[in-house]
Structure formats: C-alpha cells, structure tokens
Design a binder for these strands. Structure first.
Lengths: 121, 121
DNA sequence: TAGTTTCATAACCATATGGTTATTTCTTTA
DNA sequence: TAAAGAAATAACCATATGGTTATGAAACTA
C-alpha cells in the first residue's frame, strides 16, 4: 500500500498551522506586507503573547520567517511549504474536476453485492 | 483589514483533518477505492475505534461520506472541500512562483529604516 | 541613566486530540 | 434462535493547543 504524504512532519505542521483562523488571517495580512507583533495583535482581540505563540507555530511550519529590525522582529511570508501542501492535495484533483467521484466506486460495490445475493439463488 | 478565510469553520475542519498523517493516508487509500473500517484499520498499527474516530473527523470535515452495505459502512471520498482549501491557498501562489517573495518587502523596510537613521544626521 | 517599547518566556488553565480497552448495537449467518 | 462480525460508543488517559496574566530581556529614547 502506497501512503503518499504519510509520515511527513512538514505537511503535519503546515496543515496544522493553517487549521487556525487567526493564523490564516495573519498569513493573509502578511501577504500584503511584512508586519511586527504589535501590528498583527492590533486587529485581533488577543494579547501580544498569544500572537507571539501563533507566530512561533507559523515559523515552525516554515510558512513565515522573522527578521530583526532594531527591537522589532517583523514577520514575512515564506509560502513555499504551502505549495508542498497543495502538491499533496493535487493527487485528489480528479475528485473535484467533475469527471469522477468516489461515490461511483461505492455504488459499483453495492451493485456487485446485490449480484452476489442473486447468485445465491 | 481584509481577512480572507478568517472565521471559516469549514476551512478549520478541512485543514485540521489534513494535519494528521493517519487521516492523510486514509484519504490516499480512499482515492484508490472505497473501503470499510476494517480495511482501513489493517495497514495501521491501530485499533478499530481509533480508525472510526479518524473517519468521524474526516466526515465532519466533509472530505468523506459513509455508505451502508449490510453491516459494513464503506467510506468514500468527497474531495470538494479540499478544493475550497486549495482555493484559499491560491491567494499566496505568487509567493512561490519565483517572481516575488515577502522577503523583498522586509529588506525594503530595513533599507528605509537605515535611511531614517541617516536623516537624523 | 532612567524610562519606554517590543517581544519572549514562564506559569497556569480549560478544552481538544489521539490513542487505548471494554461494551453495545445492529446485521448476517449457521 | 444463537453465534459471529462490523462498527459505534463510552470511559479513560496523556499530551497538545490556544488562551490568559505576570514577568524578563533587549533595544531604543529622552
């Protein structure tokens, strides 16, 4: 059995990072330009340490990096890991391109199951 | 501030579902054909209830549905929500297409910061 | 040098997550 | 009808997650 994407800690980290709405908003914000912690904390009703934690998660996933400009540590996007995640998802594209649905296979199974029943007569 | 994808529970659920390697492997397996719980539990060193839990998470995310064939409840892919996730990620594609990197903006910031310093003379 | 700003870290809390074993429910089959 | 099989559910456990407040450490600024 081929298990693509199985045991790929990088994918774990990227998807886990994207699972939180605050982090997605932070990424969206960073796509418009680099920002420091206070910039990012401001639009959310959230403390500064909470934002720092989110940034740490994003940094661990590779989706952002941090700079150092004086006492400020601006975060900026490094979206390459997101591409890896998309590449993994691509293997399922035939299931939403309209030409195929796994439901077909299920119905096929149910049909052959009925045929088995008939064979028993 | 525009926050695309913020407060979108469906995206939360899809990304969270994909963050677990076992669930990704299950999805990969299901892309080759529908399977019941025992089929899915077999290749993993994992109990049947654990797999049932994973299936529940996947079902809640909309990535799979369950059928009923006798006492078996085969799972099959419904990858459409994955497309929604990819659509959200698409907004960052310019950051990995080679033509742009948010690091540019950071360096720009640092440069203008230096200019500020010079201005102080 | 003293104060202010930016950020990180520590300690804590409530809840979620991923696993287990034991049990129950439903369905098929002997 | 009794036994067996498939899957769900319950109860439990350890750890992770997302938040808080309080504090600490650098780096600017007056």
């Amino acid at each position: 059995m081929k298990l693509p994407g199985y045991e790929n800690p990088e994918l774990n980290a990227v998807f886990a990072a994207l699972a939180d709405p605050t982090r997605r908003a932070i990424l969206a914000r960073l796509s418009e330009g680099e920002a420091n912690v206070r910039d990012l904390a401001e639009p959310f009703e959230m403390s500064q340490p909470a934002v720092s934690k989110h940034l740490k998660v994003l940094e661990a996933s590779g989706l952002i990096e941090r700079g150092q400009v004086g006492q400020s540590r601006p975060a900026y996007l490094k979206a390459a890991p997101m591409k890896e995640a998309m590449d993994w998802m691509e293997q399922f594209s035939r299931f939403w391109s309209g030409s195929f649905d796994q439901l077909d296979a299920l119905l096929e199974t149910m049909k052959s199951s009925e045929e088995d029943d008939l064979k028993d007569d």
